[in-house]
Write a protein that binds this DNA or RNA. Structure first.
Length: 842
RNA sequence: GGGCCCUUAGCUCAGGGGUAGAGCGCUUCCUUGACGCGGAAGAGGCCAGAGGUUCAAAUCCUCUAGGGCCCACCA
């Protein structure tokens, strides 16, 4: 055996060997690009660093990698960075649980604090800086593990372009982009009701909401009407009677029309509230008249704003009813009733309020149980409350039809794969209820880079913040001092305060094309990669990551951040539910790589149609592994035959027929990849490959073992077709193809040219020659299989009856068919297709 | 309540007006000059249901039923 072909090739261990060599040799390094047109840039999703990677993540990344490898082989300089999304609440939650700590910004920094071996129990409060240090430690560990998984999977990312969303350079970009939004009037601050998570004690944005069906109950309550007639309302939140500011009914509702303009008295508290009309009130719901509270739900906010109602908030940011009775509750009895609610959480207050209403006779009948959708923060465990607070917003078209239309046009201009994902963008934008709330009252994130002047009475001036120059970014207003001030002026009348909030994670990750492209610090790079070619991501974050990236790019550059959005599906459990992280973690990616090979896992992932949710199916991985092994063995056969042959030696009709068929496969795989349909490219390559091994190899085997020009023709055709197959498979099975390539070629297959039919079109012939010959061989096999004898059993008679034309094709194949069938000869008759094969007597 | 996707062999999925496809699994064989981590052959389907368009429908249209996802103002 010549070359470096091993006797017993194996796919085990290829991952470690080749991933290390690719790194050493810089195979995937982004370099040498002179102009944007040479580059293919990918806006890789930075995985959230919280725990471990699961199979769903591996799935989407393998698909994108196949496209990246294709583009690289097509000659593009592929810019394929990786990022870790390590800032934000997921990391905080994980750190809290992992170490048993909480963050208390009022505590001083403890320079001697060391991470505990075991989590503190009960949780120990830490200074903000200590807490942030723990976040860095834990994310650092997770990120090393993530990198190991992605390297073993064989992602062709350029690891020298790794970024993280908490890095100083990222913070600088995030702050710079925000300050530019601010300068152009696209960012603004406002004191307003916001959806508030009382556990995390932070505002949350519309995109982070989810509705969950929760049990509740309608309570029918009696209000005192101005004319003495009682008014019945139904509510699921009787505890909010004390924050009631109005009753509202539909303007056309005849039952209540006479009452508009009059007042009613609230039960228990006897507070006088106006009865008002608003078209949002639904005559079909409850009694047709609703209690407006500040604030029980977002409808309340609408009524409060549009009807200019009082503000009577009672629920604090910790989710408890405020301690002192509010001043609008006046009578002693009412104040005594409020005292029962003070300090209680919502559920406790509700139970007590129902008791009070029952005792006073103002609860009619029994509460009637219902299930209804309740708004939650998607990462939260308790229903959101609505509190009034000062927050920062970025305009996203939610309150501005002009901008909204521009963003809709951007979504239309984007090329979506698959196409039907486009409507999700449109629906989300059309449904926006307000601007994008970007400030969060959390700790581990990018600080909002602003300070506020304090006037003589110590009141901050939010309308005219102190803005740092871009050259000084990033800043931390909690510890840095603005120009023109001294540190000891912090918090002093006439001095300043820093904004202690941080940005929402999406406010930073919406800038990934800028972060990866080093916007503002490496202009040459940025010009080469922006706007990018491809944004791969999951469909569940179209409303967040995709939309917010479009918003930021539109505001900053007036253009789309990428040309294509490729949306991958989800991994489903066998019961068709989205595979949960906990279940996905039962089998870790590393364990699957060990069992099926990274190539096997990649085969499974890239077999799935773009955008399609796909069952978690290890049997697909086994098939991928089998394919990889088949490639090894077939390659061993081909490369063991002869030294490098001259392509010009391909003269035999059967060899040319095979190459003719291969040219078709190359064309269809290329066309599929150009449409981002990697799965179709893989399927057509794979089908052709199995036909190649099962039929063509068997037919030419005898001839190829010989010598002379007939043998040389087969040897040359085999080598050429193997080279083509290896390159067609390289985007999917990078390890096994690289291994085989290394047996006989210089350099990496991943830097080799994508095969083109034009490479060997002068050597192709009519593929029908191969088809007809293979069909006859298949019939011979059937005869032998039916007779339960070996495929090598000799035939004493072989007769093909067929059309003259097809017989000519088989004749053109020469003696290959007779050899493969182990017949003495073959006879031909004109007539309807039939094969007669008789076994030689044993 | 609105929208999107899916429903094809036991399983996982391709196909997308012209005779129903693949792999796995199953059945029956083959012991090897690439491969037993092999190889060959075979059985197996009213293409969810009902209407329509068409010479022709798994494919296009309408409706229905399941499944999944996204969204929606919690009275």
């Amino acid at each position: 055996m010549n070359r470096n072909v091993p006797d017993k090739p194996t796919i085990d261990g290829l991952e470690a060997r080749w991933s290390a060599r690719w790194e050493e040799q810089g195979v995937y390094r982004f370099r040498g690009a002179e102009s944007r047109s040479e580059v293919y840039a990918i806006d890789t999703p930075p995985p959230t660093v919280s725990g471990s990677l699961h199979m769903g993540t591996v799935f989407g990344y393998a698909q994108t990698d196949s496209v990246a490898r294709y583009q690289r082989m097509k000659g593009k300089k592929v810019f394929y960075p990786m990022g870790w999304d390590d800032n934000g609440l997921p990391t905080e939650r994980r750190v809290q649980a992992y170490y048993g700590v909480t963050c208390d910004p009022s505590l001083p920094y403890d320079p001697d604090f060391a991470p505990p071996e075991e989590p503190f129990d009960p949780p120990r409060p830490l200074a903000r800086r200590n807490f942030v240090e723990l976040c860095h430690i834990l994310t650092g560990e997770d990120e090393r593990a993530f990198e190991e998984v992605f390297r073993t999977l064989g992602l062709s990312v350029d690891w020298s372009h790794l970024y993280t969303t908490i890095a100083e350079s990222t913070q600088a970009i995030s702050q710079r982009a925000f300050l530019r939004n601010l300068a152009r009037g696209e960012a603004y601050t406002q004191e307003a009701p916001v959806l508030w998570d009382t556990d995390f004690q932070t505002a949350v944005a519309q995109a982070e909401l989810e509705d969950r069906e929760r049990p509740g109950a309608y309570h029918r309550l009696v209000f005192g009407g101005g004319n003495g007639e009682p008014i019945h309302i139904e509510t699921t939140r009787p505890e909010l009677v004390c924050s009631c500011v109005a009753l509202v009914a539909h303007p056309d509702d005849d039952r209540y029309r006479p009452l508009f303009g009059s007042t009613a008295l609230t039960p228990i508290f006897g507070v006088e509230v106006p009865i008002v009309a608003h078209p949002l009130a639904d005559p079909e719901k409850g009694t047709g008249v609703a209690m407006v509270c500040t604030f029980g739900d977002t409808a309340d906010v609408t009524w409060w704003r549009e009807l200019d109602l009082e503000t009577r908030a009672v629920i604090g940011r910790d989710g408890r009813f405020r301690e002192e009775a509010p001043d609008w509750i006046e009578s002693d009895a009412a104040r005594a009733a409020y005292a029962d609610l003070a300090g209680k959480y919502v559920n406790q207050a509700r139970r007590r309020m129902v008791e009070l209403l029952g005792e006073s006779g103002e609860l009619v009948g029994e509460p009637s149980p219902i299930t209804h959708p309740v708004k939650f923060y998607e990462r939260g465990d308790r229903p959101l409350e609505i509190v009034t607070s000062r927050q920062w917003y970025i305009r996203n078209g939610g309150r501005d039809v002009g901008l909204r239309d521009q963003l809709l046009a951007e979504g239309d201009a984007l090329r979506w794969v698959p196409e039907y994902m486009r409507v999700r963008f449109r629906h989300w934008v059309e449904g926006l209820a307000g601007d994008w709330l970007v400030s969060r009252q959390r700790f581990f994130g990018v600080p909002i880079p602003l300070w506020y002047r304090l006037d003589e009475s110590g009141e901050p001036d939010y309308e005219d913040p102190i803005i740092p120059p871009e050259t000084e970014l990033p800043v931390d207003p909690g510890s840095d001092v603005p120009a023109g001030y001294r540190a000891d002026q912090r918090g002093i009348p006439g001095g300043f305060i820093g904004d202690l909030d941080i940005f929402d994670t999406w406010a930073t990750s919406s800038l990934t094309p800028l972060i990866a492209g080093r916007w503002g610090s490496d202009d040459k790079l940025f010009q080469l990669v922006f706007p990018m070619d491809q944004r791969p991501q999951g469909h569940e974050i179209i409303r967040t990551w995709l939309f917010s990236t479009v918003v930021r790019s539109h505001l900053e550059f007036g253009r789309l951040p990428w040309e294509h959005a490729t949306i991958n599906g989800w991994i489903l459990d066998p019961d068709r539910k989205k595979m949960s992280k906990s279940k996905g973690n039962v089998v870790t990616p590393m364990a699957l790589f060990a069992e099926h090979g990274a190539d096997g896992v990649r085969y499974w992932a890239t077999s799935a149609r773009p955008g399609a949710d796909t069952a978690y199916d290890e049997s697909q991985m086994k098939i991928g592994r089998r394919l990889a092994i088949k490639i090894l063995n077939a390659s061993r056969f081909v490369l063991g035959l002869a030294e490098d042959a001259e392509p010009g030696a391909v003269t035999q009709a059967l060899d040319r027929a095979m190459l003719g068929r291969l040219a078709e496969v190359v064309s269809s795989a290329t066309a599929a990849f150009d449409e981002y349909d990697y799965a179709k490219a893989l399927a057509s390559t794979e089908t052709a490959f199995w036909a190649w091994t099962d039929d063509y190899l068997e037919l030419v085997k005898g001839r190829a073992y010989g010598d002379g020009s007939d043998a040389a023709s087969a040897q040359a055709a085999l080598q050429l077709s193997l080279s083509v197959f290896l390159r067609l498979f390289a985007p999917f099975l990078p390890y096994v193809t690289e291994e085989v390539w290394s047996w006989w070629k210089e350099g990496s297959v991943h830097l080799a040219a994508w095969p083109l039919a034009s490479e060997f079109e002068s050597l192709t012939g009519d593929p029908i020659v191969l088809d007809v010959t293979a069909e006859v061989l298949s019939q011979v096999r059937r005869v032998k299989s039916d007779a339960k004898v070996s495929m090598k059993a000799p035939l004493q008679l072989l007769v093909l009856t067929d059309s003259a034309d097809r017989i000519d094709k088989v004749r053109a194949a020469g003696t290959d068919l007779v050899d493969a069938a182990n017949a003495k000869s073959i006879d031909f008759e004109i007539g309807p297709f039939e094969i007669r094969a008789e076994l030689a007597p044993a």
